[in-house]
Design a protein around this nucleic acid. Structure first.
Length: 277
DNA sequence: CCGCTGTCCTGCCAGC
DNA sequence: TGCTGGCAGGACAGCG
């Protein structure tokens, strides 16, 4: 579930308790999430100060005073809880069975990572490892940055013989979209998810109107979602226009179509056959 | 190089 | 009512 807007909301949540604060105590409740924690995870983190809380695509990066970077991914069900440290000596933290990591910060805030499905990940990287990290190095442009233009999208789509929906999930093409916002952006752009990615590429000259429309839709959908996250904080049940709305009438203005569900690349795509061409 | 499939993990829910 | 099976999702390995 967490895609770029949700991860950005988490980043903003973590800035006050963590940025500029030191790890006083790190508690690991288990040996692994999606992967095992590195053997010296607790020792390397304890005493380090967080200089910056950053986000790249769906990854959270905590830059540390030691030169290390704590790279975190929320997976599907990962989330952080921020609470006051109000413990009596010897008292244990109240815990949920899925609270896997607890950070006690010098800011007197306690930051707990909870992840029922354990698709999340935490890796402690040296500066060299971070610079050479294959996943980070190969990420495409941030969709909300100036680097993400219709021309860039067109170039990235050139020669791709896969559907535009599947291509949008490729983090090397554009970084941070997931299954939900890919569907929402295509709906807003009135483009069929089944369309071949290469049809968005340009042969010569500037990008075509459809590529411009999709680029704009991606930016709008993500910006709106970020604004909504920070305003409400909580998840509203289905604030999406097409995602998980199979059989419902299309919400596009003047459209009398019905949302259908198809499977692409092994996952669900929701779209309106009537207005998405 | 590229595209496609399977794997990880568990909560939830439809269907028997 | 209780069980089972399938699905959800992102990253990544491995295949052809």
């Amino acid at each position: 579930m967490p895609e770029l807007p949700e991860v950005e909301a988490v980043r903003r949540l973590l800035v006050p308790p963590m940025q500029g604060a030191r790890f006083d105590r790190v508690l690991l409740r288990r040996a692994n999430l999606r992967r095992p924690f590195c053997w010296d995870f607790v020792d390397r983190l304890t005493g380090a100060t967080v200089t910056r809380v950053r986000r790249r695509a769906k990854h959270l990066l905590l830059d540390l005073s030691t030169g290390d970077t704590l790279l975190m991914h929320l997976g599907m069900t990962g989330d952080f809880r921020v609470e006051h440290m109000g413990l009596a000596p010897g008292e244990d933290h109240p815990r949920d069975p899925h609270d896997h990591v607890v950070f006690e910060m010098s800011s007197r805030w306690m930051v707990t990572f909870n992840d029922p499905r354990r698709f999340g990940a935490m890796d402690l990287l040296t500066a060299d490892e971070r610079a050479a990290h294959p996943t980070l190095a190969e990420l495409g442009p941030e969709p909300l940055s100036r680097a993400f233009t219709a021309a860039a999208l067109a170039t990235a789509c050139a020669g791709r013989r896969t559907s535009i929906k599947v291509a949008l999930l490729d983090q090397q093409l554009v970084a941070g979209l997931g299954n939900i916002y890919a569907a929402e952006a295509l709906h807003m752009a009135r483009l069929s998810p089944r369309r071949l990615a290469s049809t968005l590429a340009t042969r010569a000259g500037g990008p075509r109107e459809t590529t411009e429309r999709l680029t704009a839709a991606i930016k709008t959908v993500l910006s709106k979602a970020i604004a909504e996250q920070t305003r409400s904080g909580a998840y509203r049940t289905n604030r999406f226009l097409v995602y998980d709305r199979e059989g419902e009438p299309c919400a596009a203005e003047g459209c009398r179509g019905t949302i259908t569900r198809i499977v692409q690349g092994g996952r669900s795509t929701f779209y309106c056959r009537a207005c998405q061409r």
